[in-house]
Design a protein around this nucleic acid. Structure first.
Lengths: 215, 215, 215, 215
DNA sequence: ACCTCCGGGACTCCCCGTTAGT
DNA sequence: ACTAACGGGGAGTCCCGGAGGT
């Protein structure tokens, strides 16, 4: 009875996880179903017991990969009392994170593929980037203004717009720096990009309240 | 039959140009040699008269595409007396530039493919990005300090490091914003990213002298 | 994508049939694999799932085409009680048969290519021509001597040799006339060849018993 | 001075002759210009000093090859006082003639290619076959009726039609037998075809006067 | 008359997604 | 779930006809 220890649901999940990792490494079209199945010590033919098509796997793997990127972001930012933007940026722009491609940020790894894919795929990116933005906005606001909870609605809105703008800039710079660093390979330039952008972003993130205060 | 008036060099150049455009649109692996040749009303059989391999075409097309991106940058920044950073940023983050993929920035379009390609390809990116950085640094320095020519060496070095850091941040943010906007497709989010990052970058670029002055 | 309802055997058979028709029309080297596949609404890439090489297809298509020519011969000659040589000759040398190339006789259409092909191809022609000869001999003998069943062995042998000689002449004349008619295109000459040779062959086929009787 | 002993006209003629021989061996498409030029110890590039295109060479070589076939026919039939049909048939259906392809009959060798070629090529065949027929008719008439020159116009016409019919049959059988023999390669069957058809044709050619006499 | 080589097109090989049969 | 293989399609290689330029 039964044929293997692994349940069908388990195999499905392992496939999605493996696909997410490989997609980040090699791009969405960079790995074949056959190679993917081989990784799980399965054979090519069994794939369609788990997914109706490759696209279905792409959708699920992308969901997982993008969600993970948000999860990592949230953990790094929020696992202490006060949002720790520095730790997040340090990690995000660390050489290890930039170099190793398996565990990296799915947005940075796959954003380049998205424009050539379907609107559904782009919607997945849109949704996750929106979420990541919210996380960062929240971190900026909590980091900058512990008393914000008591702000009036009008003040909060202004602050929010301000924070959202800052978050957008930071996110753009993070993604851009990571993609540049990866595109140029390991080199003095890539290290300079990571180090310098990291410092500037920390200035920016800290600058939010200060800049407001100074005006 | 036989060959037409067009010289070999001309055909070669047209192939490289077409490849550069298609690569930016669809990625380096996104177009086949046969389709590419068809664009020039040739057949794929003649391809190897011009290139020893597909990789050779990739190298040349990448060179062209990246160089063009630098050229555009230089023109937008420098075609008037005073470096015009605003015009460059406006153009770079315009919806048209972000949406249309044919004429866009090769770095933003292809940076995502580079990590999966050979070290040679990555070196091409490195070289061009280094050049683009220098252009932007020059613009920032000339824009910020018309009298810089008389600065002492020490001051100049400091200013240079400062400007280079700013340039790195700006470039990262530009590339990141463009890639994000493209990844999410045409949407309120993409428009917000482009608009907001544009404004912030203009603040940053203007901030160079002010920041120095304030210390 | 994926494969349609058609089984492999079916596709294989359709390929062979299409090749046989095209070879008769344009010669063995007159059609490319890509064009052939296009006829079945397939693409050239899948060809080697069905045949190890072009030669293998040639062999099978030739087998089919030649066998069909024998089958047509047999049907025309034998579908009534008494062998009907006249009907066969009439059809074989009809303008329609001579002009239209698709449905025509494979021997006449392809004999000219055979000498330039491999010994295997020539053996295929040999085998089928031998069979066609036997069919015609049988027709001549049954047509000429209804009581032949009671002939002594020696007489039968003599009759056989006689009939085989006549069959060889008839077959040569048929093939020769058809090839001449085709080589000169539609013209008074081609019509004269067909008409005249037809009449003479009918004389010859009827002459078998008469010639024997006269000795 | 001058560059070589061979004049341009001579080279032209040698090219045509070599092409005629190769075409008979391998078919009209069976030899490349490069190989042909190599045969004359010339190089590929010089070809277009002699012919505007390959087609022009084909036309001339075909003219030569076909004319030669008529010339051979005429010589064998007529080089003695009385037309010697037997000698012609013997030669034409000799194993050497059938096997060796270089010197063979152009009609038999190339008739199979003609239907796939232009109407001009087919017209060349038509013209030469018409001539060959006339030669054979003349031989049949002179062989059968030395006094024919004095026949009345009406009688001559009847005789002519009779002879032309016989000539058509003989020509068809000759061409057909030769093509069959070549198609099946060297074998008992090919030898049988040649031997048997030869004997039957000789019967037929001799039968002309006898058949007329018997009516 | 040569050399060179362009552009055309064919064949072969290989990989991928997908499906059928076991 | 595996084995097998179909059909799609890209890459690379070869050779041919033809067109310069020396």
């Amino acid at each position: 009875m039964g044929h293997s220890r692994a349940s069908k649901a388990d195999t499905h999940a392992r496939l999605v996880a493996a696909a997410a990792a490989r997609f980040k490494e090699r791009g969405i079209d960079g790995i074949s179903l056959a190679d993917l199945m081989k990784e799980l010590e399965l054979t090519h033919g069994g794939f369609y017991k788990h997914f109706a098509s490759r696209d279905e796997l792409v959708t699920e793997a992308l969901d997982l990969a993008l969600a993970e990127s948000g999860q990592v972001m949230r953990e790094l930012l929020f696992d202490s009392d006060k949002p720790n933007i520095a730790r997040f940026v340090d990690f995000y722009l660390s050489a290890a994170h930039a170099g190793g491609r398996t565990g990296g940020c799915a947005v940075a790894a796959l954003a380049g593929d998205a424009p050539r894919k379907s609107a559904d795929v782009q919607a997945q990116f849109r949704k996750q980037i929106e979420r990541n933005l919210e996380i960062l906005v929240e971190a900026l606001r909590r980091g900058s203004s512990p008393a914000e909870g008591r702000a009036t609605t009008a003040e909060a809105r202004t602050t929010s717009a301000e924070a959202r703008g800052t978050a957008l800039l930071i996110l753009s710079a993070l993604y851009g720096a990571l993609m540049m660093a990866r595109a140029v390979g390991d080199s003095p330039l890539s290290r300079e990009v990571l180090r310098t952008v990291r410092k500037r972003i920390l200035d920016l993130s800290g600058a939010v309240p200060r800049r407001r205060a100074s005006r």
